[in-house]
């Protein structure tokens, strides 16, 4: 009940000068938060998911994740590094989950820059499928430094109150990958593409947490196999659909040529 007024004063005092420092990480990550909503190219983006103080703590705490995991300990270390009192991570109401979200969001947003580097090169994959595979692999490699802590993070994400936000982040990631790969389809395949990529990504990520092969060769092979399966199933369904459509069309035209008034 007793409110630590001195700590609050200290926090408030230390936030002011920090804004200037903190603004850069928060704004560089704020470009495309509400991706399911209209994305404007002319107007400034909406403010990012984290406030200035929050991203200062999170950015500093993120460096401690390989050692301490996505935990309150990492957050406390981060607050200390950012020059804030130990109590300050309590501004993050979801605690460790906010740190996980920070990882997910920053790594997703880093993909845009990576995709530019990747697709500028001469050996860039040509088709949309190849680009999707390359980007998915890039995103998986971004887990490299924290992969030994990722199973704990997945456990936190699976807590019922965090599940909706975790799924939203996964959907945002697959949307980002398809968009960056240059897929322009806006028919029902928009949904199936994102759903299958989300499935492939989560299973591969889970595989990666137990992969001890050098440079995650096994994970790479696993990903290729899953993507090939999706491609063959999708191709088969597409062929069936095409055949049904063609047959129906031909049937109607035969009836019309016989004088049936349809």
């Amino acid at each position: 009940m007793a409110c630590p007024t001195s700590a609050r004063a200290a926090l408030r005092a230390s936030i002011r000068p920090l804004q200037t420092v903190a603004a850069s990480p928060s704004t560089s990550t704020s470009s495309s938060l509400y991706r399911r909503h209209y994305h404007s190219y002319d107007h400034p983006p909406p403010p990012g998911p984290f406030g200035a103080t929050e991203s200062a703590i999170l950015a500093a705490a993120y460096k401690h994740v390989p050692e301490h995991g996505f935990t309150q300990t990492a957050l406390t270390h981060g607050a200390r590094d950012a020059g804030l009192p130990d109590i300050s991570p309590s501004v993050l109401t979801n605690g460790p989950f906010t740190l996980i979200k920070y990882h997910l969001i920053t790594q997703r947003q880093a993909l845009a820059e990576r995709s530019r580097q990747l697709f500028e090169r001469d050996d860039a994959p040509a088709g949309v499928g190849g680009k999707v595979a390359a980007l998915t692999w890039e995103r998986l490699l971004a887990n490299k430094d924290i992969i030994h802590r990722w199973q704990e993070a997945l456990a936190v994400m699976a807590q019922p109150s965090y599940v909706p936000e975790s799924i939203k982040e996964l959907a945002a990631l697959s949307d980002e990958i398809w968009f960056l790969a240059g897929d322009t389809a806006v028919d029902p395949s928009w949904y199936t593409k994102r759903a299958t990529l989300s499935m492939v990504y989560t299973t591969t990520e889970l595989f990666m947490t137990n992969d001890h092969s050098p440079d995650y060769v096994e994970t790479g092979k696993f990903l290729t196999r899953r993507l090939d399966e999706v491609k063959s199933v999708g191709g088969a369904l597409g062929n069936i659909g095409q055949w049904v459509g063609f047959t129906a069309n031909a049937g109607i035209n035969i009836l019309r040529s016989k004088g049936v008034r349809i």
Binding site: L11, A23, S28, S30, G51, E54
Partner: peptide, 21 residues
């Protein structure tokens, strides 16, 4: 702390520094 972050000056600062994708 939240209220501080939501202050307009903080937002406008964020906007002017925003890097264009």
């Amino acid at each position: 702390a939240r209220r501080l972050c939501a202050a307009p000056q903080c937002l406008s600062l964020a906007r002017s520094l925003s890097t264009t994708p």
